[in-house]
């Protein structure tokens, strides 16, 4: 994947972000810049603060210290599809858009991109997990966001569905180029999708790795990067598969 060189004004800029629940800080003076158009995977063990960080960027939490800048519009796809069960699929896709933009045509355009146009008139409860997650993705994309936040969106899916979702995402990124932050706990998923991998540990960025374009097709390089990231995560050798 060819990406534009990082532009001078980053899409996301975080300085000395601290967030605590009670006594324990979840984020402890975190600094982070993400260039426009970059696809960044955020890895970390559970409790490392990766979901907290995503919620901050989504504007769902403002009780923090530090400075946070997000340039442009933001869309979020959550771990669960979170579709409104009482609205047809296509209405869910354009939900909350301005009047005039919330048309069926716009919904279908987004649904075509996730290859679900024929399910436009279904009720969400009749969809499979993978289909619902793709609709959720279509909903995020229909907003044409500058910044796309994905919170473990494939966590609940089976391996095969995940693989096809990865391919779909890579295609969509190539087309739309939103700045993307993908929270995941899966190193291979991170390497499959992202062009930069961040490892969050103890409330800070512990590891920051660029993923060269051809890594996916170079097993040796991929293995080296994978090992480095696992080290950053603090995964001991006997924990590795």
């Amino acid at each position: 994947m060819n990406r534009t060189a990082p532009s001078p004004a980053p899409a996301i800029a975080l300085r000395a972000i601290t967030k605590s629940y009670g006594q324990a800080p979840v984020l402890a003076g975190l600094d982070l810049d993400i260039a426009a158009g970059q696809v960044v995977a955020l890895l970390g063990r559970s409790g490392s603060g990766k979901s907290t960080l995503l919620r901050l960027l989504a504007g769902l939490d403002d009780a923090i210290t530090g400075s946070l800048t997000v340039n442009g519009s933001v869309s979020v796809a959550f771990q669960e599809p979170r579709l409104l069960p009482w609205r047809r699929v296509w209405r869910n896709v354009v939900l909350g858009l301005d009047r005039g933009d919330d048309t069926r045509a716009n919904a279908l355009t987004a649904l075509v991109q996730v290859e679900l146009a024929d399910l436009a008139d279904r009720w969400p409860l009749t969809l499979s997990g993978g289909q619902a997650q793709r609709v959720s993705l279509a909903r995020a994309l229909a907003r044409r966001p500058d910044v796309l936040l994905l919170d473990e969106p494939f966590g609940a899916l089976d391996a095969l569905t995940r693989a096809s979702m990865h391919a779909l995402l890579r295609r969509l990124f190539a087309e739309h180029r939103p700045t993307t932050l993908l929270v995941t706990h899966d190193v291979d998923e991170a390497l499959a999708i992202a062009d930069r991998v961040l490892v969050l540990r103890d409330g800070r960025v512990h590891g920051d790795h660029l993923v060269p374009a051809l890594t996916a097709h170079d097993p040796t390089r991929r293995q080296i990067l994978r090992t480095t990231i696992l080290d950053d995560l603090g995964v001991t050798p006997d924990e590795r598969d």
């Binding site: 769902l60 933001v74 979170r82 939900l95 909350g96 909903r139």
Partner: peptide, 16 residues
């Protein structure tokens, strides 16, 4: 609450 949160992220006003 998850749906309400999603609605907030989608830019719904309180009334919506």
């Amino acid at each position: 609450p998850k749906l309400l949160e999603a609605a907030r992220v989608l830019g719904f006003t309180a009334r919506q």
